[in-house]
Design a protein around this nucleic acid. Structure first.
Length: 109
DNA sequence: TGGTTGACAGTCC
DNA sequence: CGGACTGCCAACC
């Protein structure tokens, strides 16, 4: 269990950007990073990894730039990945063979 | 203060 | 298409 800490200003930016993703669409770590002027999408991922606010921050709508689900190393059995695919499917976002079916669904800030 | 880690990304082969 | 390599930035120890 990680130590909980107050969100840093950087993390707040990430969460704010993630919250802007409309329902039924997805975004990438890269776009979020670009939106908050951060060249490291990895840092963005780390911020989302903490995700102190559960569904308030739709982290399941954030995918890799290659339009794949991404690493998600937090999912040892891939359960988390499946959950996100399910959530996205409910929102109308479909994946085929692990890739985003319709690239047009990517939300641009 | 300094080195390692990580929900990533672009390039090269 | 995919694996290896490098760059990137913030959090962690």
């Amino acid at each position: 269990m990680k130590y909980e800490r107050p969100p840093t200003s950087f993390e707040e930016k990430v969460y704010a950007a993630t919250r802007r993703i409309p329902r039924g669409r997805v975004s990438t770590y890269r776009l979020i990073g670009k939106f908050i002027k951060c060249a490291s999408s990895q840092a963005v991922g780390q911020a989302l990894r903490r995700n102190p606010f559960a569904p308030q921050v739709p982290c399941h709508r954030v995918i890799a730039s290659s339009l794949t689900i991404g690493g998600f190393s937090g999912a040892r059995d891939g359960v988390e990945i499946k959950r996100k695919l399910k959530l996205l499917d409910v929102e109308g976002v479909q994946f085929i063979k692990g890739k985003l079916a319709d690239p047009n669904r990517v939300h641009h800030f």
